[in-house]
Design a binder for these strands. Structure first.
Lengths: 122, 122
DNA sequence: CGGCATCCCCCACGATACTG
DNA sequence: CAGTATCGTGGGGGATGCCG
């Protein structure tokens, strides 16, 4: 078996791959948006809810999620086209673990002064 | 209350801050190493266990973890110095949620062919 | 031994413009 | 409406060297 369970030190270990995904700037909020809705959400609606995301990053993030089987994409061939996104069952199964992280963060993450963005740096 | 629970769309929401941390290349494996050990681990030992980490990134990651109260640093003022790292209680409390993520990843993360590193890119 | 300082590279991400 | 194409940039992260 190529992937030993728990071997975070393997550069291609599943945990690292997952963290690469949900570590993306928009991934977690998109998953949460789709999870909260429960059904299908259109592209423009997603962009409206994820305040600040560019169309490029929205597309790219959704493509990655789709590639990993977390998100389903359905196209209505109308003019203009309507594209609907939703969580797959696999996607829904990730919501639990993600919520656990979120709960931990909201309870324990120290409140940061807005001036030092990101790291402390210097 | 400044941080609304569940507002992933707030740029400084706790979840995003947490993901910035554990999204780091070495963070999760360091936390896991310290968690598995249970006690104190020396700098050189950490570097040995986290195969591939440079001293610079090891120091930087540990500093960030320390800053967030997840890791404790203890210096023995001998020559040469001996520095010991361990998880704080707060750090230990993160292990559960992190393990949940890890379990999900190992069960559900699609096996990736080693050729396409990171995204699909093109 | 542990850890800054420095230099450099690369890629995630943003802004903008064009298209079916 | 829902994308692609292109360009530019910030900062995460690697390599190396010096230092107390």
């Amino acid at each position: 078996m190529p992937t030993r369970r728990g071997d975070l030190f393997d550069p291609v270990c599943p945990t690292r791959l997952l963290l690469d995904r949900i570590g993306g700037k928009w991934t977690s909020m998109l998953v949460k948006t789709l999870a909260d809705d429960g059904g299908e959400v259109r592209f423009a609606e997603l962009q409206r809810r994820a305040r600040g995301v560019s169309r490029k990053m929205l597309t790219q993030t959704l493509r990655d999620l789709e590639h990993d089987g977390l998100v389903a994409r359905r196209v209505e061939a109308t003019v203009p086209p309507a594209v609907h996104y939703s969580l797959t069952p696999l996607g829904h199964s990730l919501v639990g673990p993600l919520d656990a992280l979120r709960d931990w963060a909201e309870t324990n993450m120290p409140v940061v002064d807005r001036n030092r963005r990101r790291r402390l740096r210097r």
